[in-house]
């Protein structure tokens, strides 16, 4: 399984000279399974670059949406494969009692917010609510579970061979809970992340920023580290960077994360901050991820 981060920013695109190293595109992760199947995890503005990179790729792919906040769907109408008649796109996402996934996405892909409507997309697009039980895409087994965030929100786990990727980009597991002491069954998202080869997890706020954002659906650095420790993931990438965090600020937070990880008994290189366009290789018969670039 190959994993590439096309957008690592949270909330709103944040391009500019101060974010050029970690990136300014919002959430999107490209996954190539061992059988060649293609997945996109979320469709933030990063999916535009993914689409351009796929120009000559096979025409069927799956987009797995964690939720429908704008920073996770904004790139959909700028995703080049959606405008090719020969492309088949399956969009997975959370169910809601209010409306179907298609209808909820159509609120964005419609006037006056969009120049095109869902029905006008040239590709063969379908919308599916994620089942509660595991399902298969290509060579992978996919699991989805609701996680603590605002509104219906999923986290995903992708098992391909012996490798596993857990993706929980928007997550506040410590809301009203002490995740250091709680029984594992009572920690949001932990079932998805347990023993993952690679965990991509919300790391939006510095600890000092979190008290002003309790209930906003995101983690502090301490919460992210605690969650990763409880999950026993082989490698953790902190994701969904706050748009106010410059490269220099993220350098500081990354260093702090590593130091605290080591102080808790972790090993060097097991935790890092997400960098746009970075790649990870998860061998089919290994348990840890290696950086491909």
């Amino acid at each position: 399984m190959k994993v590439k981060l096309w957008g690592t920013r949270g909330s709103i695109p944040s391009p500019g000279p101060e974010t050029i190293r970690y990136g300014g595109n919002t959430s999107c992760v490209g996954v190539t399974l061992s059988d060649g199947s293609l997945l996109a995890l979320d469709a933030g503005t990063g999916i535009r670059s993914l689409g351009l990179a796929l120009a000559a790729e096979p025409a069927r792919l799956h987009i797995l949406l964690t939720h429908l906040h704008l920073d996770h769907i904004q790139g959909l109408v700028f995703f080049a494969p959606a405008f090719r008649a020969q492309t088949e796109i399956v969009i997975w996402g959370p169910a809601s009692p209010e409306a179907s996934l298609r209808d909820r996405i159509a609120r964005y892909i419609s006037a006056p917010l969009s120049p095109v409507e869902v029905r006008e997309l040239p590709c063969d697009v379908s919308f599916r609510h994620c089942p509660q039980s595991e399902w298969e895409i290509g060579s992978a087994r996919i699991s989805a579970a609701s996680v603590a965030h605002r509104g219906p929100t999923l986290g995903y786990r992708i098992d391909d061979g012996d490798s596993s990727l857990a993706y929980i980009p928007d997550h506040e597991p410590a809301l009203g809970a002490d995740i250091d002491s709680l029984d594992e069954a009572w920690i949001s998202g932990l079932g998805l992340a347990r023993d993952a080869s690679l965990l991509i997890h919300d790391g939006q706020y510095a600890d000092a920023e979190y008290p002003d954002h309790i209930g906003w659906g995101h983690s502090s650095l301490s919460h992210s580290i605690s969650f990763a420790r409880r999950a026993n993931a082989a490698r953790t990438v902190l994701f969904h960077h706050d748009p106010m965090h410059s490269d220099e600020r993220l350098d500081q937070l990354g260093l702090e994360a590593q130091q605290r990880w080591l102080a808790l008994g972790g090993a060097d290189g097991e935790i890092e901050l997400a960098v746009e366009r970075s790649e990870y290789e998860l061998p089919a018969h290994a348990t840890s991820a290696t950086s491909a670039s």
Binding site: A145, S146, V147, A148, L175, G176, A177, D183, E184, A185, W186, I187, S188, L190, G191, L192
Partner: peptide, 10 residues
Amino acid sequence: MTQRPLELIL
């Protein structure tokens, strides 16, 4: 150990 549904956790 089975993960509890999010609604029960919350």
